[in-house]
Computed example of a mutant assay.
Amino acid sequence: MYLFGGNGHCKVVVDIIKKSNEYPIEGIFDDNPKFNAIFDIPVFKTKTLDFFIDKQLIISIGNNEIRKKISKKIPALYVKAIHPNAIVSYDVKINEGTVIMAGAILNASVYIGKHCIVNTGAVIDHDCSINDFVHISPNASLAGNVVVGEGTQIGIGASVIQGIKIGKWVTVGAGTVIIDDVPDFAVIVGNPGKIIKYNSIENE
C-alpha cells in the first residue's frame, strides 16, 4: 500500500499501520516532499496520479478540505487503518480511507464515513453518525446520538452532549462545549459554544 501526504499526520498513520501489521507500506508520495524518508519508508515526489489506480492508499493529510479534493482526483483502492489500542465496538461501521488513532473509543452502533480522522483518545459514544472527511481531534468527546456533518472539525478537548446535530464544514474550537445544534459552516467556540463567524469552503 501507499500513503499520500508526507508531513506530521503521516507519521502517526505510519505508526498505526506498522503496529497493526496489516499492510506493508511501499512508499509515501507528496507534491512537495520535505523529507527523503519517514521512519524507514521512502518519500517520493508525485509525478502522476494515474500511478495510484488500483493501488491500496490512505490520504495521510490532516486538512479535511484537501483530503476531499485529493480523494476526488485519485481513483485508488482506499483502505482504512485502526490502531490496535483503539476500542471499537463489534458493530461499528468504518468506511474507506478513515484512520482511527491510539486510545480512541467507538461505542455501539457508531457510523464513521469515508476519509475521516478519529484522533488520539477521542470518544464517540453509541449511535453517533460521523459523515465523510470529518476530523474528531484528540480527547474530544461525543455523547450518544450525535450527528456530525461532512468536513467538520471537532477541536481538541471539545465536548458534545447527546442528541446534537452539527452541520457540514463546521469548526468547533478547542475545549468548546456544544449544548445546541450547530448550523452548516459555523465556527463555534466557548462554554457554552457560541458562533463567532462562518467558514467559506471551496468544496461547496
Rank of each mutant, 00 (worst) to 15 (best):
V110R: 01
D132K: 03
G5S: 04
I74D: 12
K93L: 07
D127E: 15
K34I: 13
I25A: 03
V134R: 00
P33D: 08
H83S: 15
I41E: 08
D127Y: 03
K73C: 07
N107E: 14
A140N: 08
D15A: 11
N95K: 15
V79W: 05
F35N: 09
I59E: 01
G97L: 04
A81L: 08
N107G: 07
S71W: 04
G62P: 04
P84E: 14
A81Q: 03
I53P: 10
G8S: 13
I87N: 14
A81S: 12
V146M: 05
T48R: 14
N85T: 15
V88E: 05
A104K: 03
I117P: 00
A76D: 04
P33C: 09
I74N: 10
V118P: 00
G97W: 00
P24T: 13
G27Y: 05
I100R: 01
K73Y: 06
I74C: 09
I25Q: 03
G121D: 13
K55A: 06
N64F: 01
L142R: 01
V134K: 01
E96Y: 07
G8Y: 13
F52K: 02
T48H: 15
K93P: 00
T46C: 10
K47D: 11
K80N: 08
V146A: 00
V148N: 00
G27F: 13
I100K: 02
G97C: 06
T48N: 15
D91Y: 07
V146N: 01
D40C: 08
G6L: 11
N107V: 07
E96D: 13
F44K: 09
F51S: 05
D31L: 15
S60V: 12
F133N: 02
P138W: 11
E26L: 14
P42T: 05
V118H: 10
K34R: 14
N7F: 07
K45C: 08
E26M: 11
V123S: 09
F4I: 06
